[in-house]
């Protein structure tokens, strides 16, 4: 099992300033999954509770001179502590030097101990070199890697309808305020491009309705919904017609997933997974200077849904 590559400047910036800080907000550790073509960060994908997050980068976005080999179809996966990984990247940035090399090594922490796996960052300056060893888990076995791969494949199944979420900062502000009123958030997405967020408790229900958002996937004509006057009745009608999906999610999960704004996405979409299985949030990044989606980077979150009975 071998892995060795050079991190590109863009790769370092992407990870250090954007993706790792966002991942750190949702959990302490994550899986790093390296394949011959992709570098993938996965959080919480082997559990069904909690926010799942998957960031996938084409290897050339992050690395130069990428060399990987393993007996498991040249795929390697392990878990890493996000704080340590971020710290190693941060300090490597502050060293003015040559390229930053990263490789997988096995070292003995002390003579008496067994060799342990590390991800080693090596930056060579003109007169000095700095080596940082970030401890990682034992590489995942074939079965676990397969499981990671299948959850990755599963995550490729997009909801039938996705609506473009309005400005994330606005949403964060809203959730900050309504978050105090309840622990369960009702999220509904209609095929007309409406997004409803609502929190209810015995004495108050508070929510927000965003209308005429951009729709990806299955859409319906908004004129078909008749003359409903209030947002609640509009949603009710859409649900009855099967042109909307509604799920309940944990307010904290939703708030955490909004931390994705740290990755500076250019567009964010929200949808409900098939048979109301999860709330799906997808983020797009544009090729700098254009409005074209950069397909070499992708990020999405999946939030577990709560049983409405418990809501």
């Amino acid at each position: 099992m071998k892995f060795k590559a050079f991190l590109t400047d863009h790769g370092v910036a992407l990870l250090e300033r954007r993706f790792l800080p966002a991942f750190e907000k949702i959990g302490k550790t994550c899986h790093v999954y390296l394949t011959p073509v992709h570098f993938i960060l996965l959080h919480n994908v082997l559990n069904s509770d909690g926010v799942q997050a998957i960031a996938q980068f084409s290897k050339d976005v992050v690395f130069d001179d990428y060399r990987i080999s393993s007996q498991n179809q040249d795929r390697i996966a392990f878990t890493v502590d996000l704080t340590l990984l971020l710290r190693a990247l941060k300090s490597s940035v502050s060293i003015y030097g040559d390229k930053l090399q990263v490789k997988l090594v096995r070292k003995r922490p002390s003579l008496s101990e067994r060799p342990m796996p590390y991800l080693t960052f090596e930056s060579k300056g003109l007169k000095s070199a700095i080596i940082q060893d970030v401890p990682i888990s034992q590489p995942l076995n074939r079965i676990d890697v397969q499981e990671l791969q299948s959850s990755l494949d599963m995550a490729q199944e997009l909801p039938r309808t996705l609506v473009q979420v309005p400005e994330l900062q606005h949403l964060i502000g809203l959730i900050d305020r309504i978050g105090k009123l309840g622990e369960v958030l009702e999220v509904a997405v209609t095929q007309y491009g409406d997004l409803h967020l609502q929190v209810s408790q015995t004495m108050v229900s508070l929510g927000s309705e965003y209308r005429k958002l951009r729709v990806i996937g299955v859409r319906a004509d908004p004129t078909s919904m008749g003359s409903a006057s209030s947002s609640a009745s509009r949603l009710q009608q859409a649900l009855q017609k099967g042109e909307a999906s509604k799920v309940f999610v944990n307010m904290k999960h939703f708030a955490k997933s909004l931390q994705c704004h740290l990755t500076r996405p250019d567009a964010a979409f929200c949808g409900v997974g098939a048979v109301d299985s999860c709330l799906y949030m997808m983020f797009q990044y544009f090729i700098p200077g254009t409005r074209q989606t950069d397909n070499t980077i992708s990020l999405h979150y999946r939030l577990p849904v709560l049983d409405p009975g418990g809501a």
């Binding site: 809203l174 015995t202 108050v204 927000s208 965003y210």
Partner: peptide, 11 residues
């Protein structure tokens, strides 16, 4: 202005 609406119903 951008068609978003925030509402609250207080019992």
């Amino acid at each position: 202005a951008n068609d978003s609406c925030i509402y609250a119903e207080i019992r």
